[in-house]
Design a protein around this nucleic acid. Structure first.
Length: 430
RNA sequence: GCGAGCGUGGCCAAGUGGUUAAGGCAGUGGAUUGUGAUUCCACCAUUCGCGGGUUCAAGUCCCGUCGUUCGCCCCA
């Protein structure tokens, strides 16, 4: 072959699809700004130990999905598989706690996990995430969830469902873990192989096994919700109440267990039925122990992350790509005219008009055909005679009306030109 | 990491061992060397993801490999 191709599980995002990405970023940026969240950008690779300690040694992500490599000084580095650990590291390192109060943060960027690629799952994928660090108020949970649901709604995704659970605090979990192990041990031989393995390592994960027989057994298993301390229970009740007050609907799912060890109390997932096996679009929850776990002061926190590739799959099914149509298409022929055409195109752009310049030098007929297809509202035509008289033909493509304008006066009244463009466009679409 | 399916030009494809590899869309040039439609003409795969094998003969069968899709797994 001899040519290169993007590595397995990575891909290029090109023209029509990219506009969905830009749209999502724009909507998110605006929403976060309105809610007083600051964007932060953290490095794409970090010390391996950050993830191992933050996410948990026993998790699948750390155990078998990380891109880990030695650098030239033989330090173990890892391409971030998620960004909460990195954000918390940044919070600690930059002493954001010292600023007092609550830190509201958001980010977007690539993440890396070595998994078998599948629809909605790549090795390099992108997340958009929000973290609220420094508040133990259940309103923080409700706010951060509301921002996620509002964002999705604003993107037109209205058929998503949310599962909600509480995994309690560390001691609730400890007690529940024991109860679960006690319950499952007699059935050990009937569990699927993965679940048997998890019985000692990470028993809570057995709850979302998809194995039929395991599921039958789990039906009667004790529920985490029966093992919450009174404090955890009332916290969870409050979160639910706050969500209901905002008309955010959810389904209580006591078997929802998140795969990363740092979660405490609130856990939630937003899912779509249009994504096959990779149904989760957004997932998150509270992680009150993580800041301390990573060497900072004991600090409560909540957050979530959205999978952008999955979001794009849904958006592409839902609507046509958001387009940004051209205002002008500049057609020219002949040396003098072509040079003037470039100058005019740049002048229009400086005034804020979206302007495409035809560089083909082909016959006017061909250029007009392209002008038509470009979606531009108007066409500017320069040939030898225009070049000589320093004029330009302004042709409105919808009506076919064409007038001669002096090049120097074309942009004299940009506001009125803008108005004409807007009007021509609205009669076109109306 | 495991299982199954698929891989023909930029896109959608026909083709199921006997050939010169259909067709459509898009693109480029021309009929029309200064005006968008339609129409017409021409060009656009020495080759069927890649490598090897079987056969007189392979896009078609076999093996390997790469990619991709679906499920498991995992999670966003």
């Amino acid at each position: 072959m001899g040519s290169f191709q993007a590595l397995r599980g990575t891909r290029d995002v090109l023209a029509p699809e990219i506009s969905y990405w830009q749209w999502v970023e724009q909507v998110a940026r605006q929403q976060f700004a309105q809610a007083a969240y600051q964007e932060l950008r953290t490095p794409i690779f970090e010390e391996t130990a950050l993830f191992a300690r933050g996410i948990g040694e026993a998790t699948d992500v750390v155990g078998k999905e990380m891109y880990t490599f030695p650098d030239r000084k033989n330090r173990s580095l890892t391409l971030r598989p998620e960004n909460t650990a990195g954000v918390v590291r940044a919070y600690i390192q930059n002493k954001l706690a010292a600023q007092g109060g609550v830190q509201r943060l958001w980010y977007t960027g690539p993440m890396f996990r070595y998994e078998r690629p599948q629809g909605g799952r790549q090795r390099q994928f992108h997340q958009l995430g929000a973290e609220v660090i420094g508040s133990k108020d259940p309103r923080a949970d409700a706010e951060v969830i509301a921002i996620a649901t509002d964002l999705l709604k604003q993107l037109g995704l209205t058929t998503l469902t949310m599962d909600l659970n509480s995994v309690g605090d560390a001691s609730d979990r400890q007690a529940y873990r024991q109860a679960l192990v006690d319950f499952l041990t007699p059935y050990k031989d009937d569990l699927d192989a993965d679940s048997q393995d998890r019985l000692t390592r990470n028993p809570l994960r057995i709850l979302d096994s998809k194995d039929k027989r395991t599921q039958e057994i789990i039906v009667d298993a004790p529920s985490i919700l029966d093992h919450l301390s009174p404090e955890s229970q009332s916290f969870f009740d409050r979160v639910q109440q706050l969500l209901t007050d905002q008309d955010i609907s959810f389904t209580l799912n006591p078997r929802l267990v998140r795969g990363l060890d740092y979660y405490t109390h609130t856990a939630f997932e937003i899912q779509s039925s249009d994504l096959g096996a990779q149904a989760t679009v957004c997932g998150g929850g509270r992680y009150d122990g993580l800041v301390e776990q990573l060497g900072g002061p004991a600090t409560p926190a909540v957050g979530w992350a959205m999978g952008l590739e999955r979001l794009m799959i849904l958006l592409q099914k839902l609507h046509a790509p958001p387009s940004s149509p051209m205002d002008f298409y500049v057609v020219s022929r002949g040396d003098g005219a072509e040079a003037q055409a470039l100058k005019i195109a740049q002048a229009l752009r400086r005034q804020g008009f979206a302007t495409e310049l035809d560089l083909s030098g082909s016959a006017f007929g061909k250029q007009f055909k392209r002008a038509d297809r470009s979606g531009a509202v108007a066409c500017l035509v320069l040939g030898d005679s225009e070049a000589e008289s320093n004029t330009v033909q302004l042709k409105w493509l919808q009506s076919g009306e064409q007038i001669t304008v002096n090049q120097s006066t074309l942009l004299e009244d940009a506001a009125s030109l803008r108005q004409q463009v807007t009007q021509a466009r609205s009669t076109h679409s109306g």
